Amino acid sequence: MTAKNTPLLLLVTAALAAALCAPALAADPAAGRKKARQCQTCHGIDGVARIPIAPHIAGESQIYLENQLKAFRSGKREHEIMSVVAKGLSDEDISDLAAWYASIKFTVTLPK
């Protein structure tokens, strides 16, 4: 590789990395809200956990949520409940759910 090819290689590498990490463009938060009914027992429709062993997921990054759901679905990440639930999710379901929970806005108040 020559020095004059380096900027092009960096540009191509950055574009590829962005494409691989970007959430699906067709993600639909409204569809995700409907699909989140199956999640509401543990995570709440608003993303605030209802049970002590479930994390709050409201406002989490869409990319993070998609990656975690795909990891549960593939078996790369295991949990007695999430592994079962995620197995039945399509890529579209995962993108929609992640878009819904990522779209929730919340504020945090620190103690004084």
Results as ranks from 00 to 15, higher is better:
Ala58His: 06
Pro52Arg: 03
Ser83Val: 11
Cys39Ser: 10
Leu97Ala: 03
Gly44Thr: 04
Ala19Pro: 01
Ala102Val: 08
Lys87Pro: 05
Glu80Ile: 10
Ile53Trp: 13
Ala71Lys: 06
Asp93Tyr: 00
Glu80Gly: 15
Leu9Glu: 08
Ser74Ala: 12
Cys39Met: 02
Ala18Asn: 09
Asn67Ser: 15
Leu16Gly: 10
Ile51Val: 15
Phe72Asp: 04
Leu8Phe: 10
Ala31Thr: 05
His56Thr: 12
Leu89Thr: 04
Asp93Arg: 01
Ser103Gln: 07
Ala17His: 04
Ala31Ser: 15
Ser61Leu: 09
Ala27Tyr: 00
Asp46Arg: 01
Leu25Asn: 09
Pro55Ala: 13
Cys42Phe: 00
Ser83Leu: 02
Tyr64Cys: 01
Cys39Arg: 01
Ile104Lys: 03
Ala27Ile: 08
His56Gly: 00
Asn5Cys: 09
Gly75Lys: 06
Leu10Glu: 11
Phe72Pro: 08
Lys34Tyr: 03
Gln68Lys: 08
Leu20Gln: 13
Arg33Tyr: 03
Ala26Arg: 06
Ser90Met: 03
Tyr101Glu: 06
Ile81Arg: 03
Gln38Val: 12
Thr2Leu: 12
Pro55Arg: 03
Glu92Phe: 01
Gly32Leu: 06
Ser95Glu: 13
Lys4Leu: 10
Asp46His: 07
Met82Cys: 08
Glu92Met: 00
Arg73Ala: 11
Ile45Gln: 08
Gly44Cys: 03
Pro29Asp: 01
Ile104Phe: 00
Pro29Leu: 05
His79Asp: 11
